[in-house]
Amino acid sequence: MGILMAALLALSLLSLGFGAAPLSWGEVLGGLLGTGPTEQVLIVQQIRLPRVLLAWLLGASLGMSGAALQGLLRNPLAEPGLLGISASAGLGAVLALYFGLTAVSLWALPAAAMTGALLATLLLYLLTRGGSSNLTLILAGVALSSLAGALTSLALNLAPNPSSVQDIVLWLLGSIADRSLADVRLVLPFVAAGLALLLAAAPALTLLTLGEGEAVSLGVTLSRLQGLVITGSALAVGACVSVTGTIGFVGLVVPHLLRGLVQHRPGRLLLPSAIGGALLVLASDLAIRLLDTPRELMLGVVTALVGAPFFLVLVLKSRRALP
């Protein structure tokens, strides 16, 4: 934990120090504290700081949601993307863009994304209510994910204006570049609330290691646990998606890498996964900026390129583990 935290802070400083305008460390610090020249304060506080803070919030949301959903479903392949939470948040945001709601209010985009995520949650609940199996929940999530993807494609297909289509597609690819502190302020309360709900589920998640029956016999209320994890994930991930677009696989990769550090206890995995997620998003974002590509790569593209093969390896490993 300490090492993860230290690595995150070090990488954050590195991220603050790196950019188009060459600034010395002293100038970065001056900009951060607001004591330097106005131009440097603007660069650090308005351009670089939001990028770092959003990486923290997004990474923490994806990492902790992934760890919590894997614990709930007792399946190392689960993550917000799998249950359709990310895709539904994306659909909500796309609809807001499509109908031009974003021009009406700054809050329209995140509100639409969170509504999408929460509707997905509610639908998942209705589909799996009454103690249905994890398989049902996962299949419902896959179906929901496909539906949200199809509706998003439909919206793009019917979009009257080609340039708005390009905007939407680019946003869907996922990025934390060129965001402002206002975006951070918009997302922060929902991420904080979501992560708090997830942390409240930690002891029950560890008890689920014994299976549902024994966990309930030890005092776990399954409906409360499911409510905490699914609502918490929907709030945190939904809010982030509205600002950053859909970014996949962080919630899959990070808990998997850190599980050994906490002796595989699902409840203890939550906080390290949040920090590790922030670290991974920040590192990916830094890598994008360091790579000398003709056009800056999108964060979601990079995480998917790294994460999808990882996912396949995990599937192969779990296939081999079967009798």
């Binding site: 290691t209 014994l210 024994e214 016999s217 599980r259 595989h264 699902p266």
Partner: peptide
């Protein structure tokens, strides 16, 4: 205290 028939421990704790 309840001991289920299911022999599996879900995570290798």
């Amino acid at each position: 205290a309840y001991l289920s028939q299911d022999d599996q421990v879900q995570w290798p704790i």
